[in-house]
Design a protein around this nucleic acid. Structure first.
Lengths: 233, 233
DNA sequence: ATGAGCAATATTTTCGAAAATACTTGCTTC
DNA sequence: GAAGCAAGTATTTTCGAAAATATTGCTCAT
């Protein structure tokens, strides 16, 4: 990243602070900002071109999401990655995602079915086009996120959905971390298709089992391939 | 609240912003700041004696907890109360709290048992001393919170515990709201005792049933007594 | 050498002014 | 009289300087 100060301009959110939070979140999830790295205001001000207080506001939201931690009076740092945290996170994700999926399958209407089918279709197309390294592909990541989001989108639980989204980001950071050290990504296309079919077929128990093992297996793989770089404690 | 500007000084947290967040949270949960009330910076600055940016940081955390909502460029307001929100909240609380309780019962050690027993004891003492209106008593509320916190304190899931705490605050606001209109509080002493006994007796299924219906019944009562003041949409 | 105390430096935290944006009021036109 | 516009006011959002706090590096006594 260049060291010349930039004059930040909004691209995404309506306020600069939310925009910065969005960009910072991305830097952290993709591990361009490394776990445990300390987030000094002078440096951030240079990279993001915003003032102390605006950055502070952005960091406050990220701390609430769990991507950043703060020791009061001693600044902020990127949240550490540990096997304990990964296990904690995985447990929480399964609990919440299974509940959301079950209720989505119960309540989902035609539009929901269409969202599920079309987001899977898009995902499959991207995988066809770049069968080698799609897991490092930002487009694939966005489509992957959208497919999983579509599955739970009819649950009608804003509170749990917001929590799910924060957890998804935290998990994606671990996925990206393990992708750096993994010889070749597991093929998830079959799992995604089965998940879609169970959901659309309103086979709730089966779909919940699938999502549970989908999340758990991903987590296990991360633990396996990234164990070296992930702090044990 | 007096209209003379105060020079804020820290009482609680290490930074002023976290201190203000703490005080604001309390004002909102106790409904001294009413649902939907718009939170103007000039007014807040007067009451809390902090500057724009410090207040903004505090509001950002409260927004993440769901006690405050923001429409970008149009400021902050106290989160509305609705029957939908109450139902959403209750569902999320049951899902998370049941999971935490079950795992607490599985893992809890001697210290956990002591925390559960002693916090219930304190609660019972307070109820004895003020059998009439203990539900409006700040001391009782703190003890009540601590008892429920003790129950789940051995679960070892920081992520879900943090979520649980935020949900507890949101729920307490609804409880306080209904307490204003309710002739007489339901007697929860028996439920609390049964909960303690099931937990200490390591009877996980029974304890989970009890906590589930404890939360659900409380929510139903709130809906019943506060329906008038709670927006239907 | 080692650690305590203190000065110098680095960093975070807080402030109030200035810029940007939204809202209101009163006027004009149809 | 209603709709649209414009100027003025209210409010939020952003900034960089100043205050508070933490960290580092040095001196000196043991």
């Amino acid at each position: 990243m260049t060291t010349t100060a930039l004059k930040a301009r909004k691209e995404f959110g309506k306020t600069l602070a939310s925009d910065i939070a969005h960009r910072l979140r991305n830097e952290i999830v993709t591990c361009r900002l490394k776990p445990n790295e300390s987030l000094k205001f002078d440096a951030l001000r240079l990279s993001f071109g915003a003032s102390f207080t605006t950055l502070r506001e952005a960091l406050t939201s990220l701390a609430a999401e769990g991507l950043v931690v703060t020791e009061e009076q001693r600044g902020y740092k990127v949240a550490p990655v540990t096997l304990e945290d990964l296990a904690d996170l995985t447990h929480a994700r399964i609990l919440i995602e299974v509940d959301l999926l079950r209720r989505s399958i119960e309540k989902g209407d035609d539009d929901w079915e269409i969202r599920v089918i079309s987001s899977l279709h898009r995902l499959a197309r991207i995988e066809e086009r770049a069968p080698e390294d799609y897991a490092n592909n930002a487009e694939w990541k966005a489509a992957h996120r959208q497919f999983h989001e579509a599955l739970v989108s009819a649950s009608g639980s804003p509170t749990l959905l917001a929590m799910r989204n924060a957890l998804f980001d935290r998990a994606e950071r671990y996925r990206n971390l393990s992708a750096m050290f993994r010889p070749r990504p597991r093929d998830k296309a079959g799992e995604h298709r089965a998940l879609m079919q169970a959901a659309i077929g309103r086979n709730a128990d089966q779909a919940c089992d699938l999502i549970r093992s989908h999340i758990q297996t991903t987590s296990d793989n991360v633990a396996k391939y990234a164990a070296d770089v992930i702090g044990a404690t």
